[in-house]
């Protein structure tokens, strides 16, 4: 599934973007399936807005977004739900975990939606990211770094054609960042999927095929 952005201008950035050039906003942009995209820009330029538009969480924009051949603005609740559980996965900047649930339960909510990733595999991922012993702890008791790793595993525990990531490593140290990046790269490769990473600084965590400055 390719992602097509046609002259998209978010309403929150419309005034600021008048007269200025952008690699994304207000122009035709096609992200082919399997591509690895880095969106690099400073804070407040619309990285999160872009990720949310691509995931269908933000519909406050002009222009058109196509998920394959599906027009995002007219897609039904069923199509959007199916897209989010089987085709497009996300790792939120603010994690968006359920604080009243344990780490395992947070991941299980995503994994059991399609039941395509075995529980044992999730346990192995938790071991690799160093949170195996925290899986039964309430998320509200975990550090930001631990929560971010739970969020990453949750994002990988479903089938996807695109993985959208919004500053997914902001709370991780270098060691954990590398471990998480390796795991993500493996999973993306397994699926033959594309990935889009929005971040503040350039990085060489993934073999990017495209880098976009906002």
């Amino acid at each position: 599934m390719q992602l097509t952005l046609q002259n998209i201008v978010p309403s929150t950035l419309a005034t600021r973007l008048q007269g200025s050039a952008s690699a994304i906003w207000g122009r035709e942009l096609v992200l082919p399936m399997g591509s690895c995209v880095l969106v690099q820009a400073p804070s407040g330029t619309g990285k999160t807005t872009l990720v949310q538009i691509l995931y269908g969480l933000n519909s406050s924009y002009t222009g058109r977004l196509l998920w394959g051949n599906t027009e995002a603005s007219t897609a039904s609740d069923k199509i959007v739900s199916d897209l989010r559980s089987r085709q497009v996965s996300i790792i939120f900047q603010d994690m968006r975990l359920f604080p009243e649930l344990s780490a395992r339960e947070n991941i299980e909510l995503k994994r059991a939606q399609t039941d395509t990733v075995p529980v044992e595999m999730v346990e192995r991922w938790a071991l690799r990211l160093g949170i195996a012993d925290k899986m039964d702890n309430l998320v509200s008791t975990l550090s930001f770094g631990e929560q971010q790793r739970v969020s990453i595993i949750r994002g990988l525990a479903q089938p996807f054609q695109w993985l959208l990531m919004d500053e997914p490593f902001s709370h991780l140290d270098n060691r954990n960042r590398s471990a998480a990046a390796v795991l993500i790269a493996e999973r993306v490769a397994e699926q033959g999927a594309g990935m889009l990473l929005a971040d503040l600084e350039p990085n060489d965590l993934f073999p990017y095929s495209q880098t976009l400055q906002m």
Partner: peptide, 15 residues
């Protein structure tokens, strides 16, 4: 809040 997040994670309103 939980319902909103579940919707964001791909659980449909019907479900």
């Amino acid at each position: 809040q939980s319902l909103t997040l579940l919707r964001q994670l791909g659980y449909s309103a019907t479900f």
